[in-house]
Design a protein around this nucleic acid. Structure first.
Lengths: 201, 201
DNA sequence: GAAGAATACGAACGATCGTACTTATGAACA
DNA sequence: TGTTCATAAGTACGATCGTTCGTATTCTTC
């Protein structure tokens, strides 16, 4: 039920969601959906929370389980993010890439929730980079937040451009960009090569 | 009239535009707007065309007029883009950053128009980079399109994040990222320093 | 000055929006 | 078995959506 809502929100936007269409798609009645969530705004908040769960399951949790702290985990996170976008876990690509832009100029609790979830992800990536720094794996880096900005820039650009042009090429561009930047910071080329190396890794 | 439509489209989206609100805001009647454009889709196309004109006037034309071909023009284009976003030429930031994401999963003539205008801009940036390459000003670069991808990634990320957090910091992050990348490609540091150097240049 | 096209208007169309209110349905519990 | 309470359905509300119609006004052109 919510998963379908998250899916269509990545295509039509979080404002493009309507209780009526959601009811039809799920087989329930319109008033059933309306009373379940209370209001459209609360529905939007529930959708953001559901998308956050999926994102954690698809990107953060696997990387935590598979790789130890350090540069290898940073590379795994980046690769898993690209897979999460490439595999079209949501029809319209990354949920937060879509809704961040939709709500970036619309103050309110929905934007706050989107910002909170996005910040959570970027904070985690920043901390992961800091572990790599502490381990001496990125000797030429002095500002983890700056690198986070650059990495997520590539990720989201690849997501949007892949959708716009229905092409896989932007993902390859992002992989090249990620590897080049990490290499320029003194990262181990062997670790870095894991980005975009295997279909699922 | 159209300028107000472009403005609100960057906030509420191109689908969020309504003929009724547009009529109220412009003092015209609802049917006056409707017959003027024929349909909502044609209104959206007119808005895209109007935004394209503004973008050219604010970013492309000034750089062409002010600087010669080569790395200096590339830097000017990038700096002017950041100013175009930072100055809130449109209330919701860059029009194409907003509408590209809105329509990236919605096939149709509107998306086609957005893709065409965006491609036009990126093609121009790519050609500008190629002039710099031909002049030997980026000796370590071998793929202009790859650099274009990386540059616009930083630009659009700064635009969205500045709006999301109502902060100027993302622009400084983008400037740092742009300069670092151009420097790593062997660009003249003195030219590159022009990005983010002066308030208007 | 008369005839024509072009433009903007008010009014209304059916459809859909978010929401509120009322009525069954059904499980939990005394 | 009878009562309670939450869940969902049905219905209806006012508002707004995009669009169409017929009409009035303005401007061009002969």
């Amino acid at each position: 039920m919510l998963s379908h809502a998250v899916d269509t929100a990545t295509v039509d936007g979080l404002d493009g969601l309507t209780i009526g269409r959601l009811a039809d798609a799920s087989g329930h009645s319109k008033s059933g959906i309306a009373t379940l969530f209370g209001s459209k705004e609360q529905l939007q908040l529930a959708v953001v929370a559901a998308a956050r769960e999926v994102f954690i399951d698809r990107v953060v949790a696997p990387a935590r389980a598979r790789t130890p702290r350090g540069l290898i985990r940073v590379c795994t996170l980046l690769g898993d993010w690209l897979d999460y976008s490439r595999d079209r876990v949501f029809r319209g690509g990354c949920f937060f890439a879509a809704t961040s832009v939709e709500f970036d100029a619309k103050p309110g609790v929905v934007r706050d929730a989107i910002v909170a979830a996005s910040s959570e992800w970027e904070d985690y990536l920043t901390v992961s980079i800091e572990y790599a720094m502490a381990a001496g794996e990125l000797p030429l880096l002095d500002d983890a937040r700056q690198l986070t900005f650059e990495m997520v820039s590539f990720l989201e650009a690849a997501n949007t451009r892949s959708l716009l042009h229905t092409s896989e090429e932007p993902y390859r561009r992002a992989e090249v960009a990620l590897r080049a930047r990490l290499t320029s910071l003194g990262g181990d080329p062997e670790l870095i090569a894991s980005i975009g190396a295997a279909p699922a890794g």
